[in-house]
């Protein structure tokens, strides 16, 4: 992993996120274990299901790099102490909104 992320309790809802290996774009793991650039497609997981998904992600190196789990609400909204970082990852840099996903860029 590129840098240490906060530890999350098993019951905390979470999402598996990573970087697309070929493009470097932020991606989220979907319920069917595909990868999507759209956080709305990400699976909300708890407990052993989250551990399993992360283990799968770690084995999916050709597609996704440096996976980790991030905290989300039960509805899949970004939550917890890394809310600013994860919002920027999900949406794009706050100083260049025209370059981020908020402007419809991939």
């Amino acid at each position: 992993m590129s840098s240490a992320r906060p530890r999350l309790a098993p019951e905390t809802p979470k999402m598996v996120t990573a970087w697309d290996t070929a493009t470097g774009r932020t991606v989220y793991m979907t319920p069917s274990r595909e990868w999507s650039v759209n956080i709305a497609d990400g699976a909300v997981l708890v407990g052993a299901a989250a551990d399993d998904a992360l283990a799968f992600a770690a084995s999916d190196e050709g597609r996704a790099t440096d996976p980790y789990v991030m905290q989300v609400s039960p509805l899949g909204e970004i939550d917890g102490r890394e809310i600013i970082r994860e919002t920027i990852r999900a949406v794009g840099p706050t100083n260049h909104p025209m370059f981020g996903k908020q402007a419809g860029n991939p």
Partner: peptide, 11 residues
């Protein structure tokens, strides 16, 4: 060693 990092949004 070739200056390529993986940053928040991309390489």
């Amino acid at each position: 060693m070739n200056g390529v990092y993986l940053q928040l949004h991309a390489y």
